[in-house]
């Protein structure tokens, strides 16, 4: 049974319909990407899921039903608007927020110490939060999201303000959490991160769900008739069944003629004595799909 069921939620602020009949489900132990351009309604959807906002219509089931005070302890949330108490010591701030999530103080201290070591923040524990860099605060915020070992984690732009090293560390952490069985909803613009991490996605545009499903399935759905090849020897200038040949990064994209299959083109290349290093069906990147869908919607 899905851990999160969002069923046709709608929300209007004044004259603005922020969310319109948005629906999706998130299964236990998966990373779910909630994508969309700025102002698409992602954050409003998250706030409705977390019972911060009340939906005008539709329902949300989280961990088997409506949100309760008890369930708040089983959910970790990293909001888009990052916030920590600036005027107190980092350790005290983290312990306070962890105890509000139902941890005993001694247990919270122990776990926070482990996280501070892991995130290379141990030396900053007695520093005031306002003295930390943006990246350090981002990592501290992530600790507050994960410290109580939540069953559901909802993170809004988890990689903002992080350098490549810390980005990789967060990615590894999210993979660990998934491995642990945590359900993760990741809201981000950074498509390459989603491609690397997410199992399934929902793309929201202008308050509506415009794309929803497994990542591979969606990429296949948007795949053009082409293959990517890399050969040891050079490719001929014309290949039967291929209407266009053009370079694509370190490979070459072969655009197939209508009715031709990748298998047929592969056979042709082998018969022509081309020694292949690499052959794959050209799938569009999530960035390309995102732009394609959003542009199509806005037309």
């Amino acid at each position: 049974m899905p851990n999160i069921i969002v069923d046709r939620i709608s929300k209007t602020f004044g004259n603005l319909q922020a969310v319109k009949n948005v629906s999706f489900e998130v299964n236990p132990g998966e990373i779910f990407g909630l994508l969309g351009p700025n102002g698409a309604g992602k954050t409003t959807s998250i706030r409705i899921m977390l019972d911060i906002f009340k939906a005008d219509s539709g329902t949300v089931s989280i961990l088997g039903g409506a949100m309760t005070e008890e369930k708040k302890n089983r959910i970790g949330y990293l909001p888009e608007e990052r916030g920590l108490y600036q005027d107190i010591q980092l350790e005290r701030c983290l312990v306070y927020l962890a105890t509000l999530k139902g941890l005993e103080e001694s247990e919270a201290r122990g776990r926070i110490n482990d996280y501070l070591e892991k995130f290379d923040l141990a030396d900053a524990r007695k520093k005031k939060v306002k003295e930390l860099s943006k990246g350090m605060q981002q990592k501290a915020q992530l600790i507050t999201t994960l410290v109580h070992k939540p069953e559901v984690v909802i993170i809004d732009e988890p990689f903002s303000a992080l350098d490549p090293v810390n980005t990789q560390m967060v990615k590894d952490l999210l993979k660990e959490e998934r491995h642990r069985g945590t359900t993760i909803v990741m809201c981000t613009h950074q498509m390459h991160q989603v491609e690397e991490l997410a199992d399934r996605i929902a793309l929201i545009n202008a308050g509506e769900t415009v794309l929803y499903g497994g990542l591979t399935e969606i990429r296949r759905r948007f795949a053009s008739d082409g293959v990517l090849v890399r050969a040891v020897n050079s490719l001929p200038s014309a290949i039967p069944g291929v209407q266009e040949i053009r370079p694509h990064n370190s490979s070459t994209l072969l655009k197939l003629e209508n009715g031709k299959t990748p298998q047929e083109v592969l056979n042709t290349l082998i018969h022509q004595g081309i020694i292949l290093e690499h052959f794959e069906i050209a799938l569009p990147s999530l960035d390309e799909i995102f732009i394609q869908v959003v542009n199509h919607e806005s037309e």
Binding site: R47, I52, Y77, P79, E81, G83, Y85, L97, L100, K101
Partner: peptide, 10 residues
């Protein structure tokens, strides 16, 4: 401090 969202989800 923008801590509202963290607090009200706790």
């Amino acid at each position: 401090n923008r801590t509202m969202e963290i607090i009200v989800t706790s």
